[in-house]
Each structure stands twice: as structure tokens, then as C-alpha cells.
């Protein structure tokens, strides 16, 4: 068991910015960055699964998501942040110092204790919740377009969703696929105007508007999407060999149920214009507490706020 003044849980733009600021405040933060996975719940967060990031200030030609995260990581370690590639299994914020477990949550002794904790566990992509998804993942159904686009060269595939990430994936996948059908429940996209225009201009992207996914068809590999027109109720099969799901995100807050206040959707509730939570000494930043903006730059900004809030709180305790 080791003790730290500041422990940061999560290592996306929010967590790593908090680490840079806390490290520069000589607080020697520990960042528990998570474990590898093929969805966005992994070290580096959602940007690890993206390609070009074009809206992060300071990069006029854009920057690759994984490169941006690698750079933030080395910037944090340069100032003395310690990073461990582990996943938290339990926290106890009811006693002080706060206790954090890795691995066996029933272990008598926690792995780490902390005077203050910054929660930046982010959000993970939501699946459709169909039984077929478990069977077909890795067999045509994918959570990572940058990983798997390669396998769909000259094939017809579908992307489900209507936000920026859906359009980014669709655009990326047209480098490989002969046709990408974007399946969206509504008759208009949520995505930013520039992303929409690019998608409309891309001859390989077709749109299935007002269309819901009923099922993914195929026993051992994806053969089609079963779709329903949300207006007429008419059902049809769209033959595809690949399906990429980008319908939205859910905050990673299971660890904090019953300890930190959250809204009905599971997002942590922070003080107005602050990073404070209902527990003094626990701060939250990034997508885990933001369902409005959800940008890398807003996550980084709120990570800075959390580090400053934590530093001031630690100082105030010593008075």
C-alpha cells in the first residue's frame, strides 16, 4: 500500500492535464491510467481510437489522437507524475485517507491511499444492447474503426449513429469500403456542420434516415442489419459484412455508485463552475461529469480546474 497526496483515476485529456498541473505543483500525483481494451475505456481514453484530431488548438495541421495522448502522457511524466497501467476495482471515499483497490475488491488492504482524488474516468461507447452483439463482435461487428477498417476493403458496411464520431468513422471507413451506409434514427444529424458537409459530399456514404436497428443478422459473421423505418414501421434487411456502432457514450461511474452524486444518466455532479463533488477532497473532470460539450479541449480545461481545486483544498487543510 502506498500513499499519495493526489491520485488521479483515468488518463484521457482531463486526467493527464490534471496530472501535468498537479505535478508542476510538486504534488507528485499518481495516475491510475486504466488497462488496455478495444473500446474507449482504456489508457488515453476516447482519442486512442480516433485518427486526425482537427479541433485541438495548437495543431494547425491536425494531430493523430494517439500521438496527442502520448505527448500529454510524456508531458505529465516530465514533471514527476507517476503512471500505473492498472484498473481500479473499488474505492472507499467514506473514510480518510481515501482508499483505492486494484484487482481483488475484497482484499483487506487497499493498493493505494490518497488525501485527494481526481476522478477522470471518462465515458465509453454504448452498444445497441442486442444479444447478437456478443456473438458477432470480432466477426464483422467492431467497436474500433481505426483497428478494423482494413478488413472491409471493397465491401459494403454500415455505421450506426449520427454524431461527430459516427461521421468520422464513416469518412475513415470509405478509405477501405466500397460503400458505407450511415444508419440514423432521425432525419437530421447531431454532428458539427463541417463533418456533415464532408459526409454529404462523400460519394461512398449513403444515408438511411429515420431508421432503427432491429438486429444484426448472421450466425458466425455479420451478413446484414435488420432495420425498421421509424415512420412507416416497414422492416428490411440491409446486406453488409461489417457494422460499426457509434450511437453515443455512457459515463464510467459504476465504481462510484452510492458514494458520489450523479444524475439520472450516471454523470457525476460537480459544483457550479467548479470540479468539486459531494465529498470534500474528491474532484471530477472531463467527460465523466460533462454531457454537454464532451470535447478533448473542454476535458483538458476541466482537468486543469480539478488540479487547481485539489491543490487549493490540500493547502487549506494545512492552515
Amino acid at each position: 500500500m502506498t500513499h499519495h497526496e493526489v491520485v488521479i483515476i483515468g488518463s484521457g485529456p482531463a486526467g493527464l492535464t490534471a496530472a501535468i498541473y498537479s505535478a508542476r505543483a510538486n504534488l507528485a500525483p499518481l495516475v491510475i491510467e486504466g488497462e488496455p481494451s478495444s473500446n474507449s475505456d482504456q489508457p488515453g481514453g476516447q482519442l486512442m481510437l480516433t485518427t486526425d484530431v482537427e479541433n485541438y488548438p495548437g495543431f494547425p495541421d491536425g494531430v493523430m489522437g494517439p500521438q496527442l495522448m502520448a505527448d500529454m502522457r510524456s508531458q505529465a511524466t516530465r514533471f514527476g507524475a507517476e503512471l500505473v497501467t492498472l484498473k481500479v476495482s473499488k474505492v472507499d471515499f467514506s473514510a480518510r485517507p481515501f482508499a483505492i483497490w486494484i484487482g481483488d475488491p475484497d482484499a483487506h488492504v487497499p493498493a493505494y491511499t490518497a488525501d485527494s482524488v481526481i476522478v477522470s474516468t471518462g465515458a465509453r461507447s454504448v452498444m445497441l444492447g442486442l444479444e447478437a452483439e456478443q456473438r458477432l463482435i470480432g466477426h464483422g461487428l467492431s467497436t474500433c474503426a481505426t483497428c478494423d477498417g482494413f478488413f472491409f476493403r471493397d465491401q459494403e458496411i454500415a455505421v450506426v449513429g449520427g454524431g461527430d464520431s459516427a461521421l468520422e468513422e464513416a469518412g475513415f471507413l470509405t478509405k477501405f469500403a466500397s460503400k458505407v451506409t450511415l444508419v440514423h434514427r432521425r432525419d437530421a444529424l447531431r454532428a458539427s456542420k463541417i463533418m456533415q458537409q464532408r459526409a454529404f459530399d462523400n460519394p461512398r456514404i449513403e444515408f438511411a434516415w429515420n431508421t432503427a436497428v432491429v438486429d444484426v443478422v448472421g450466425d458466425t459473421k455479420v451478413e446484414a442489419l435488420a432495420l425498421r423505418d421509424t415512420i412507416t414501421g416497414e422492416e428490411r434487411d440491409l446486406p453488409v459484412t461489417g457494422v460499426f456502432i457509434a450511437i453515443g457514450h455512457r459515463p464510467n461511474t459504476d465504481l462510484f455508485v452510492g458514494q458520489l452524486d450523479m444524475d439520472d444518466a450516471g454523470y457525476l455532479i460537480t459544483g457550479s463552475d467548479r470540479s468539486t463533488t459531494n465529498i470534500e477532497g474528491v474532484f471530477a473532470c472531463g467527460d465523466v461529469q460533462d454531457h454537454t460539450y464532451r470535447q478533448a479541449v473542454t476535458a483538458a480545461g476541466s482537468g486543469c480546474m480539478a488540479a487547481i481545486d485539489a491543490e487549493r483544498w490540500l493547502e487549506s487543510r494545512c492552515d
Binding site: P36, S37, G44, G65, T146, C147
Partner: peptide, 14 residues
């Protein structure tokens, strides 16, 4: 694996 796959690179050291 492949060079362009982020999660692949992450598990390589493991």
C-alpha cells in the same frame, strides 16, 4: 496485429 492499430500497440509490451 498491425502498425496502425492503437490497442495492438498497447498490448505489445504485455
Amino acid at each position: 496485429w498491425a502498425e496502425w492499430c492503437g490497442p495492438c500497440k498497447m498490448i505489445a509490451p504485455i
